[in-house]
Amino acid sequence: MKKKYTLPRSLKNVPTHYCGGCGHGIVHRIVAEVVDELKLREKIVAIAPVGCAVVAYDYWDFDCSESAHGRALAVATGIKRVRPDLIVFTYQGDGDLASIGTAETIHAANRGENLTCIFINNAVYGMTGGQMAPTTLVGQKTTTTPWGRSPEKGDGFPLKITEILAGLPGVAYAERTSVAKAQDVLKTKKAIKTAFINQIENKGFSIVEVLSQCPTIWGMTPNQAVKWVKEEMTKTFPLGRIK
């Protein structure tokens, strides 16, 4: 009998530090599978963000760099420009990509940098204990919006940065997916693969926004968390191809 489900070559055989039910592990595995399938392991460079995924290099078995909070796409730009033969991607959370790093994100996309950007949106700052993120839903309670995010009070609205980026001519591809159910996991893999193939084919900037569950910070069980992604998050952040 043939073994169908094996550890990807690009994923180290170690336990991760992610909480039970967290979406990061799923996306890490998807990235590793895609890297293997496209035979990129020996020419890929990952840029880890500041956030829960900062030690992604402990799990991926290929070259990685850290970056300062929000600066992943500037670091990626530097690498890709001097080594266009490498395949370079960033893996960033919502605070990193859409708050402190908004300028780096928009300008890398606007220059049409030939990069792949994987954007994990879980609507909170996870690593720092659950503050309001730029993508926090209206009404969602966080440590810094104890009564729920309120645009009337000046907390602002959930920032749909992928839609903003899709409006830029330098962006080749923008899609929002989730990892809250099996079909969506497969769609996420397809989208991430497309984003890497785009870079191989020099098409410019590709972004895949993945809605991801954070049961610990949301104060939910893993089951409640995937339900919340499916029923609540997707209302504000509809799934599908944006560009």
């Binding site: 840029i47 970056s67 300062a68 500037a74």
Partner: peptide, 18 residues
């Protein structure tokens, strides 16, 4: 670069690539 911050971080990237 779009900012001084981006410029130094681009340098970080280019330098990390050798």
């Amino acid at each position: 670069a779009e900012s001084e911050i981006a410029a130094i971080n681009m340098v970080f990237g280019a330098s990390s690539a050798g």
